[in-house]
Design a protein around this nucleic acid. Sequence first.
DNA 1: GTTGAGCGT
Length: 94
Amino acid sequence: MKKIYIGNLPFTATEDEIRELFGAHGTVHSVALINDRETGRPRGFGFIEVDDNDLQGMISALDGKEMGGRALRVNEAQDKPRGGGGGGGGGGRW
DNA sequence: GTTGAGCGT
């Protein structure tokens, strides 16, 4: 199971839309749209957990897909450590 | 009734 970073999301997008959109191209284990912790406004990006075998398929299939008038940005997430401990990994190689 | 970076508690 891997994580996918979704950016350039429209403020009108919801987890349900993401789940259905990505679920149509693979198995989506969980969907999480990130909104501002202080103001509560949507940040325009989110995360989803998908299977390893469907990760590439979703990225190649939904990356650049238009949603709400804006092109979605799909890429494998970096599994950044949020709650202490651990170190970064991979990343940055574009 | 607003907005736009880009990896979350």
